Computed example of a mutant assay.
Amino acid sequence: MNLVQVNIKSGGYLKKDLILNDISFAVKSGELVGLIGPNGAGKSTILKTVMGQLPYMDGKIDFPNAHTHYAYIPEQPVLYDNLTLWEHLEFAAAVGKMSRETFVSRAEELLKLFRLYKEKHRLPVTFSKGMQQKVMLILGFMMRPALYIVDEPFIGLDPHGMRDFLQLVDQVRQDGAGILMSTHSLDTAEKICTSFILIHEGTIISQGNLEAIRQQSRLPEGSLFDCFISLLEMQS
């Protein structure tokens, strides 16, 4: 089942300065779709378009189920200066109309998983970048939406944090959620994504599972990195 269908003819922050062209894809239940490309390729702009945050867009973003909820986990943590970690979680639960019992259970489980339980009454603005990234992951996964939109989740995460994130990804996929994740960490993406959308200068240069990407790049046994470089060379 499609959780979101994206058809962007063009898009940008100004109508006269378009960044995206001919972007079409879907994210299905149980999928982890990797939005792959270098810095400045348009990955974050695509995510903003999916969420309706791009000032100009010619196209359509369709959520087939009108009741589909999504969680957005940004690359840069967004935190309140005067709220403790626990108060951040309480605020998110209140916005999501989560019962107190469900909130406490999920919050404590995630805090323990990411080894932040002892820090729950501290101010996250004083945390390291990696710890702040874990806070954003906890906030997103606590809500258990049907769709996760994740922007560069690996930046700042230590190996334990990355393992915990990947464990949660597997769990929510098994529960039927879909994930759209942007990253330029091709080695990790190759291991965990079910399909890929390769972006260059705001345009899709290839998409599909790894086998399809290999066929399109004419590298039958190539890594995702090698395939991406080959496709870029074909564009030039």
Rank of each mutant, 00 (worst) to 15 (best):
L198C: 07
M51T: 05
S24A: 08
R163N: 13
P145F: 12
Y56D: 03
G37N: 02
V172D: 02
G156I: 08
W86E: 13
L18K: 05
T188A: 06
H88Y: 00
K120P: 10
L210N: 14
I23A: 04
G222D: 09
I229T: 12
P64A: 00
N7Q: 09
L139H: 09
S217Y: 08
H121R: 12
L198S: 03
L116C: 11
E109W: 02
T102I: 15
F63H: 04
K48V: 12
I204F: 02
P153S: 05
T188N: 06
M181E: 13
Q174H: 14
E211T: 12
K28S: 14
A107H: 11
T84L: 11
Y56E: 00
I213T: 11
I197K: 04
T183L: 11
P55W: 06
L180F: 06
K134R: 12
Y70S: 03
M57H: 01
M57R: 10
R100M: 13
P124E: 04
L79A: 01
R115P: 09
N2F: 10
V104Y: 14
R218W: 09
F141K: 03
Y70T: 04
Q174V: 14
L139W: 03
H121G: 05
D170G: 13
F127G: 08
V95Q: 11
R122G: 04
G178M: 07
V150Y: 02
F114L: 02
K120F: 05
M162A: 04
K28E: 15
K120I: 14
D164C: 09
T126I: 07
K43Y: 01
F91H: 03
L83E: 00
L3Q: 05
L85V: 10
E31I: 05
A177P: 11
T126E: 13
F228I: 00
G96P: 11
I149K: 00
D170R: 14
V33K: 08
I19Q: 03
M181N: 10
R163L: 12
D58I: 12
D151M: 05
G161F: 01
L147R: 08
Y117I: 09
T203H: 15
L147C: 08
L137H: 01
P159E: 03
D226L: 10
Y72H: 00
S185D: 15
L110P: 05
L198A: 08
D62A: 14
L110T: 05
L210K: 11
K129T: 13
I199D: 02
Y70H: 09
P38D: 02
S185T: 15
G161C: 00
P124T: 00
N209H: 01
L219K: 01
I229W: 12
L79E: 05
R115A: 13
M162S: 02
